Amino acid sequence: MDLQNRLEELNIPIKQKLPDSSVLEPFLVFGGLSTDDQPSAKFGRAIDDSMFQIDIFLSIDIGKVEAEEIRNKAKQLIGKRRNVTSELLIDNTIGRETYHIPIRISELIY
């Protein structure tokens, strides 16, 4: 839960699953954790490639610059990791147009 504690500094409600369209943004959703142990066969030792996704949904009314600032602050709060990717999208996943910031954290665990 350390990651959740750090991201609380964004002052954006954190959800464990995508809420229905009656919940207005901003909100942040912790996605699932996916793992792949296939690299173990290549290297002969236990290796687990894990990927965790965080999705931030923001009102389209805040503007792109503020959305970028929130994305950058979230990445800063996540901390230094080698494999963090993010993007800023405009989509309607929740039934209306929003800024959607998916942040993917990938780690190799030996």
Rank of each mutant, 00 (worst) to 15 (best):
M1H: 12
M1A: 14
D2F: 12
D2W: 10
Q4M: 11
Q4A: 12
Q4P: 01
N5P: 00
L7C: 03
E9R: 15
L10P: 05
L10E: 04
L10H: 07
N11P: 01
I12S: 05
K17Q: 11
K17S: 14
D20S: 05
S22K: 11
S22Q: 10
S22D: 06
V23L: 14
P26L: 04
F27S: 03
V29F: 02
G32D: 12
G32H: 08
L33I: 15
D37L: 13
P39R: 11
A41K: 14
K42D: 15
A46S: 14
D48K: 15
D49K: 15
I54N: 05
D55P: 03
I56C: 04
I56V: 13
F57A: 03
F57P: 00
L58S: 07
S59E: 13
G63L: 09
G63Q: 07
V65F: 11
E68M: 07
E68L: 10
E69W: 06
E69V: 11
I70A: 01
Q76M: 05
I78E: 00
R81S: 06
R82G: 07
N83T: 01
V84C: 03
S86R: 05
I90H: 03
I90W: 02
N92D: 13
T93E: 08
G95F: 04
T98H: 02
S106E: 14
